[in-house]
Design a protein around this nucleic acid. Sequence first.
DNA 1: TCTATATGATACCTTTTGGTATTATGTCAA
DNA 2: TTGACATAATACCAAAAGGTATCATATAGA
Lengths: 106, 106
Amino acid sequence: MQGAFRALADPTRRQILKHLSRHEMSIGDVANRFDITRAAVKKHLTILEEGRLISVTARGRERFNRLEPEGLKSAADWLGFFDRFWDHRLDDLKSAIENHEKKSND
Amino acid sequence: MQGAFRALADPTRRQILKHLSRHEMSIGDVANRFDITRAAVKKHLTILEEGRLISVTARGRERFNRLEPEGLKSAADWLGFFDRFWDHRLDDLKSAIENHEKKSND
DNA sequence: TCTATATGATACCTTTTGGTATTATGTCAA
DNA sequence: TTGACATAATACCAAAAGGTATCATATAGA
């Protein structure tokens, strides 16, 4: 849980997840898509792994990083606790629109 | 988006959100529930506000912090992109169980 | 008005984070 | 075996995070 949110806090790591959602990639593959060094990418991948957002499999001299949605799911579940709050808010918005349809651009 | 995930990365801030989900609270109210100084709590609340997870309203000499689920929703929406991955994974798990029910503890 | 209280604003400290550069290790392929 | 390549491991650096202590400001209430 903590590891997952920690991993998600960095925009580069979130981008990496989007890339990995298409297909698994080696560290070099990932690094080619960013302007940072392979070493920095490796650190990000380690943090993603600690957060259980990816899993890593060695194959020959390469290590393939694959999406492992377990951590993503735990984060989504945590956020799910608050669903009711924005549901209510959407209801409020809806009735506000219905009650004030006469108003124009404001 | 970025602000939301940054705000969610810290466990104290996530706890604060849970508290605020019950009712709005002043800074002092929040601080009484943690072992850190009011100044530290104030910093957390500022970061939560920057991530649009709370809104603050001054009333007299107090400032009331209220849940503002907009940022939570944007984070949940981002995670929603990956729904299909853990759905598929659950399917995989299900068929794996069905196909290998004979196996015991492994 | 005077005082206690709730908060704001700084300054400062330590640890973590995101990054680089460098060196070492393991593996593929000629 | 040897050279090229993919990654690992370290050491190091600057900036951000999370925290404290301190002082200033504003307001509720006697």
